[in-house]
Structure formats: structure tokens, C-alpha cells
Amino acid sequence: MLTKRIVPCLDIKNGRTVKGVNFVNLRDAGDPVDLAEIYSKNGADELVFLDISATEERRRTLVDLVKRVAQRINIPFTVGGGISSVSDVDRLLKSGADKVSINSSAVKRPELINELSAAFGAQCVVVAIDAKQIDGEWIVHLVGGKVPTELNLFDWAKEAQDRGAGEILFTSMNNDGTKDGFANEALARLSNNLHIPIIASGGAGTMQHFADTFIDGKADAALAASVFHFKEIEIADLKAELKKQGIAVRI
């Protein structure tokens, strides 16, 4: 049976993890490769590296990081942040990344989804969408949720699928950082509307939130950062709890 995926997300700046992490027995908590290895050993199903640096150096350091991660870990990983062309993606995949995630660049130029899907296949194109519910309507936002667009979440997600996206990574700006749970109503609607997998993001605080997003939100995967980085939730405990609730997980 295909299992639900637990996906820790690492924010990267200039080749280093930025969000504070709280790992004992870790010499260098700022090294994304060391962290990736620990998550992989602890039962993460996949990893996401999101590059939030904005320097000219980014491309080189990101490619270097991807190579080092791919050498060390034997589970799949996605890379996102500042990717806007076929040649960007070619370089990252050739360095060992399995998938790339695109966000603002796809909103600005939706043809990018078609181009990447044709060149590399739908399976490595993740379209990340940040959206905020305003007066009952889910509006797509850019620049980490700061800038509203004219796009509606459900319309944009459908268009992304039709253009060749292999997965949707939906972050609810209303839920992100609240630790009050995922945006399950919107997630379930996405899951029902689309035939590609949906990754839930934003709001994870407790193990029950993960169970809820898989059952009520019909999500195929759940992404979280701080609950894992600060060891508020251990992946092994989380998976045991999900299994107890009848949710298919890889243990």
C-alpha cells in the first residue's frame, strides 16, 4: 500500500540551515547535510531544501549543497528557491536532486511548468503555492506570502496540474506558524479537484494535526519544519501514532 509521507523542510541560506535547530549529538546544527542524514535515519520519507538566500552566490552554493546531500543520503529530496529556468533545473537534477519546487517563477511565467515537465517529466516538478484566505476566498500570494496576486488557489492549482506539475505543495499562510493544525478544508478540496498528489504545509503543532491532515485533509504528504527541528515531535513517535490510527506509513 502506498504510504503517507512525512517531509521535514530545511530552510537554507548561503549553504547553511537558518531556522534554529535543537539537536543534541550534532556537531554542526547549521550543516544541512548532517541534519538531512539524521532525518533520513530517523524515518523521514523525503526532504525539502528551500533556499532563501538572495545573493549572486546562490546558484553555486546550492548546486554544491545538492551534491553533498545526494552523496550522503539515500532517500529522495526536493530543492526549491529561485529556480526560474530549464537550465537551473538541469544543473540541480544533474547534481543529484530528485525534484525541484517552483513558486513565484511559475506564477510570473506559467509556461515554465510546461517547459520543465516536457524536459524532465512531471514527476520532478513540484509547484509550491502560498495562499491566504481573505473574506472566504483563497488568494495566492508571492514573496513568502507578502504579496497578493489575482489568482485563486484552486484555479491556479488546477492550471499547474494541467500544465504538467507532478505535485502541489500548498502552504496556508493563515495556518503557517500557528501550530494550530493544517488547512484541511482547503487541502481536501484540492485533493478532490486534482489527480496529482498534494503536500500539506503550514500549521503542524501536534501529532494529531498530521493524522487530521491525512484523514480530513486527504493530503498525500505532510511537510513541517520547526516541530521536527526543535524535537517537539520525533518522526518515529509520529509514525507509530499514525499507524495506531490506521494511517498507512512506512515504519
Binding site: 504510504t3 512531471a122 496529482i196 512506512r250
Partner: peptide, 28 residues
Amino acid sequence: KVPQIGWNQISELKTDLLKDVKEDSFVY
């Protein structure tokens, strides 16, 4: 959901390629 993305099980394993791999093991 298409593509199938994630960890699923392999069963009815045969040949030396899958030697020492348990039935119902998870692969990506």
C-alpha cells in the same frame, strides 16, 4: 493519484536480485 509518488511495498519476491529482502518491504 497519478503519478504514484512515495513509498510502497514489494511482495512475491523472486531471484537473487531480491535475496535477503523481506516480503512487503518499502521502496520508493
